[in-house]
Design a protein around this nucleic acid. Structure first.
Lengths: 307, 307
DNA sequence: CTGTTAGCGCATTCAT
DNA sequence: ATGAATGCGCTAACAG
């Protein structure tokens, strides 16, 4: 265009206060520039920072992120996602909160979707979001401190992340058992992420026949610590415990919780980047910054009766 | 319409798989059916359940809730809100995360907005969302247990809720001072909602010249408890402490935290109901269910040296 | 009560 | 390099 024309245009824009109309654009192009984050009706613990990071990435890519709260089982959420995509309201869906095992049924029209903490094709990305390797590190570290019998209080097994941690727990125990005399699992108790589940796991146990607990998260760990105290056991004097999440309160509790810090923002960013890459038919760039980090604090120490 | 026509129509809908097109609807009517929740760039503690409840209410009212993360000072967020409303992208804006004191500048076109935890006209709704009366109840209860000198570790004073609690703290102390010999404030320390701020408030104090702490929230309270322990003081033996929020970890900590439970979902619901009422030009229904509730647990007890 | 019609503001194609 | 013309799918207003 001629510079003169471009200037004339700019003037007109200024004079009339012109702004492109999203609705007309959408109608004409057939692309809504909307992506939808679907949250289960029962959300409680899902971190806002993850959601916010996803929204931020969406915004930077020119998309608007809508939040839809859908109650009921995961099949209903899948249904809703299919509707959103088929109706053209939304170009892509991000499933948050939990990751149903069965995956997502077909029939998604032209849209794309990503299940948070679970990447479907070729399982790429699992290494980022559902990474459970810190569990292995925790067990190794505790073994060095003399611990031999480990209890795992797991999260609900329909969460990919909870499943990954449980599997890593069992695999790591099995691996070390070959090398280290007497190292074994004292069992896996499946809880529901709640402090109560950690409390119950310890309180209802006949005998405390372990010296270390790998808890599903810091909240569960807190429940377990309390139950141990009520049985007259000290942390870490008698039992060591490792949580997950690095909650602020865990840093200041007594004892402060050893835990796995998780970069929530990085998780949200990665998930949305993946969705947007899918929408554009590009390859998602794999961030190589680890999103988890094991932190040793006061709740872990030498196993009792260790020379 | 004739039942015959209605049937003929239904058949056609089924046959063609007709679904109304949102974009066309928006273009034609000029109403986007979108409301936007604006989150500051630095969100950390804002509860997802509040956001989810707001989204749920929006959905039920036929609106789509979008999330926009806007970094920078509150003026920038206000600017962005103005753009969203002026461009017609969004019909209403809900400011979340913090509530800048200065309020929101004019120039909002035809849109409506609601600042979370702060209702502007006639100050209705403040009673619901920024209600600080539990602080008064806590002080009264502690006074009955013999406490006379109270410290308040407050939240940042650009949060309406933090300001309301501070003011209620001072007012309640003044009120009781008239009746009860020796009852007084040991001071207000303004923090930033962090555990560190609670820790510092106690750790940096020359002398522990109080027997009760009203903390901005449970996280702050946790920091304060830790600092007290490090000074060799027991909770509640030497100092009683009350938090705010009823975090799950606080229920299982030792000592478990006395606190003010807040119905996060109710807060999100109320805020969005208000926004939607504004959009429709109706009066918002005032829910009369209280959103806060004082809970006494182990972190509070009789003042030391009380007969 | 039903059938017809005219734009909403844009992107795209075809003429200049 | 610019201008003019055609729908996208709907709603509202009107005609039958």
């Amino acid at each position: 265009m001629k510079p003169a024309t471009i200037e004339r245009l700019r003037e007109a824009v200024d004079a009339l206060g012109y702004r492109p109309d999203f609705a007309a654009q959408t109608l004409r192009t057939g692309r809504s520039s909307v992506v939808t984050a679907i949250l289960p009706g029962s959300v409680t613990g899902f971190p806002t920072s993850t959601l916010a990071a996803a929204a931020e990435v969406a915004g930077e890519a020119g998309y608007h992120m809508e939040v839809a709260v859908v109650a009921g089982p995961s099949t209903v959420r899948a249904q809703r996602a299919a509707e959103l995509l088929a109706s053209g309201r939304s170009e892509g869906v991000l499933f948050l909160g939990d990751s149903p095992d069965g995956g997502v049924p077909a029939g998604y029209g032209s849209g794309a979707f990503v299940v948070f903490d679970q990447f479907d094709d070729k399982l790429r990305g699992v290494g980022q979001l559902a990474d459970a390797t810190p569990v292995a590190d925790a067990i190794s570290g505790l073994a060095e401190m003399g611990h031999r019998r480990f209890l795992h209080v797991a999260g609900p097994q329909d969460f990919v992340s909870a499943r990954a941690r449980r599997e890593t727990f069992l695999a790591t125990i099995a691996e070390h058992a070959a090398d280290i005399e007497g190292l074994e699992s004292a069992g896996v108790i499946v809880g529901d992420w709640s402090a109560q589940s950690g409390y119950d796991a310890v309180a209802q146990r006949q005998e405390i026949d372990f010296t270390a607990i790998i808890a599903a998260n810091d909240v569960v760990a807190t429940g377990a610590v309390r139950a141990l105290a009520e049985r007259g056991l000290r942390v870490p004097g008698d039992v060591s415990i490792v949580g997950w999440e690095d909650r602020e309160m865990g840093r200041f509790m007594s004892p402060s919780l050893s835990t796995v810090a998780v970069d929530r923002r990085a998780q949200g960013r990665a998930a949305m980047l993946r969705l947007i890459a899918l929408l554009r038919g590009e390859e998602a760039e794999q961030a190589d910054v680890p999103v988890t980090r094991l932190i040793w604090r006061e709740s872990t120490g030498r196993a009792p009766k260790f020379p």
